[in-house]
């Protein structure tokens, strides 16, 4: 068990180091890449489409930062066993290690971006309230949810490779309905109830509430997201263990 922890730690470190050494700009990319990503949307929505109105930029960025962490985790998770095919065919390792490593790497990068976001909000003049502390709970809930989804996609994509395309398009759809660039509270109540079945839509709204509006998120829903994520995560973990010895045969 301790060894598995070491494997996750050293593999994650290795991936981050490898990324740094690959490009000319190295570590700068951890800051530049999200900046580029967000400026694309900023240009599109704030300048191009002239949407939003006052305080649209902090509103948009908060949503984008949370969304990007989730989307990257799921995307990486869906390809992670295939990316490690060589290793899987030569060493008998618990398969959950692979999505776990990729999640640690993504979370590390998210933390950098999140700190940047907080810096931006302070600079923008958003008042710091005690509700900001809730953000740690929201991050933990999202970490659980992302882990759960990426365990499952990592487990299923090698079995049914066609799913990769389905997942990519689902992510695109989710991006549009998660409220990254619209305000959930302004949606018609019936539609809103429906949209909030998606934990990411709720989480994005909760981040905004906590950071921008100074409101405390609905504890009942939060508990629901955490419970749901835990069940999904544990079942994904069990599935990866149960099916673990089949992957070396189907991945090539």
């Amino acid at each position: 068990m301790i060894l598995q922890y070491e494997i996750i730690k050293y593999r994650a470190l290795a991936e981050l180091r490898a990324e740094v050494r690959r490009g000319y700009l190295g570590m700068l990319w951890w800051i530049l890449e999200p900046l580029l990503y967000m400026s694309v949307f900023y240009v599109l929505f704030a300048v191009g489409l002239r949407r939003g109105g006052p305080d649209f930029v902090p509103f948009l960025l908060t949503g984008l930062v949370a969304w990007k962490w989730f989307a990257t985790s799921v995307n990486r998770g869906s390809g992670v066993l295939l990316a490690n095919a060589n290793l899987i065919r030569q060493v008998d390792l618990p398969k959950y290690l692979f999505p776990a490593v990729s999640l640690v790497v993504n979370t590390f990068k998210f933390i950098i971006v999140f700190v940047m976001l907080i810096g931006f909000l302070l600079w923008y003049g958003i008042p710091v309230t005690s509700s900001w502390l809730m953000v740690f709970i929201l991050i933990s809930a999202q970490l659980l949810f992302s882990a759960a989804v990426s365990f499952w996609v990592a487990a299923l994509v090698p079995i049914v490779p066609d799913l990769k395309l389905v997942i990519e398009n689902c992510l695109l759809l989710l991006f549009f309905v998660s409220g990254v660039f619209f305000d959930m509270s302004k949606v018609e109540p019936r539609v809103q109830t429906f949209l909030l079945l998606n934990p990411m839509a709720w989480l994005i709204d909760a981040y905004r509430g906590v950071l921008l509006r100074g409101t405390v998120p609905d504890i009942g829903y939060l508990a629901g997201v955490i419970t749901f994520s835990c069940v999904l995560l544990y079942s994904g973990y069990r599935f990866l263990c149960w099916y673990g010895h089949e992957y070396p045969k189907i991945i090539r």
Partner: peptide, 27 residues
């Protein structure tokens, strides 16, 4: 297995530690 899971941009030393983990050897 030779070079199972080598991470290309890392040094020989770093890769040796990574490979060791797969043999159940602590860093």
């Amino acid at each position: 297995s030779l070079q199972a899971g080598f991470v290309q941009p890392l040094t020989g030393r770093e890769n040796a530690i990574l490979s060791g983990l797969f043999f159940g050897i602590r860093p």
